[in-house]
Design a protein around this nucleic acid. Structure first.
Lengths: 139, 139
DNA sequence: TTATTTGCAAACGGTTTGCCGATTA
DNA sequence: TAATCGGCAAACCGTTTGCAAATAA
């Protein structure tokens, strides 16, 4: 397994508190408990965190995910739904079922390559990218 | 030139009012007046609309862009900036300069094809997609 | 000890909505 | 005329923030 969130915090100089450790654990456990394509929003994280320590406030959850995002630990997604959703920083794309909201993650080398090539063509170095496909399940 | 917004409204059964006509015109004129990569947010649209008719309220602008979006006339973008931005519905992608915020539009047949292929591979028909590249200008 | 963090509640900013008079088809 | 729309201001909702007490290093 790769570095834990706690290890990443230490190596990035992010101070650890009980609250942050709990939030980190909830995020790390998310995929195990809720399936591969779990992308909780802050409310949902707050619910899960509350079950471990009911005294943690939602403001702390907001502050923590922002902190983790800035430290490059989490990735924030907006999709088409109003609220921001978070997941561990990892380089993949999303295929979203517009009927059910189900999210499928995928990586495709060919697309990664093409993206770099396109940025290059316009005189840019690619530093980030976002690809979302919206689809309807075939019968 | 292709259909105007007004023509699209008529063919989609969207009732036309003075306010909507003005908003439509402002959007149509956007690229001409403000450059190829103009993606105004609602505030900015409201400013431009106000110069033509100061009595149009921002609520109407909100209602109208939403209406146009639902009619498939406009596309809403979120990028990384809090507020929603709009542009005429057209099938292209965005390359965003993370230093300056400049937006470059591009289309790439190869990427379009790949996207369809990927959706297909997971058993989906592609109905929409979003590709954003974030880059830094090369020296 | 000193800087940072947390919880609380209030503020914020973009967006939506209820009401009711005005306008469209 | 019937149905829809627009202006206003208030409500909404996700997110941020000021403050004072609590805590990490």
């Amino acid at each position: 397994m790769t570095e834990t969130i706690e290890q990443k915090c230490i190596s990035k100089g992010v101070k650890l508190t009980d609250q942050r450790r709990i939030i980190a654990r909830v995020i790390s456990d998310s995929k195990k408990k809720y399936g591969e394509s779990d992308h909780p929003d802050v409310d949902e994280l707050y619910n899960r965190v509350s079950q471990i320590d009911a005294k943690i406030s939602i403001a702390t959850v907001y502050r923590t995910v922002k902190l983790f995002e800035e430290a490059g630990i989490l990735t924030k997604h907006d999709f088409k739904s109003g609220k921001a959703r978070y997941e561990l920083n990892d380089d993949h794309n999303h295929l979203i079922d517009i009927k059910t909201g189900e999210i499928i993650e995928f990586v495709d080398e060919e697309i990664e390559e093409l993206q770099k090539k396109i940025a290059d063509k316009y005189g840019y170095n690619l530093v980030d990218h976002k690809l979302e496909l919206y689809g309807i399940k075939k019968k």
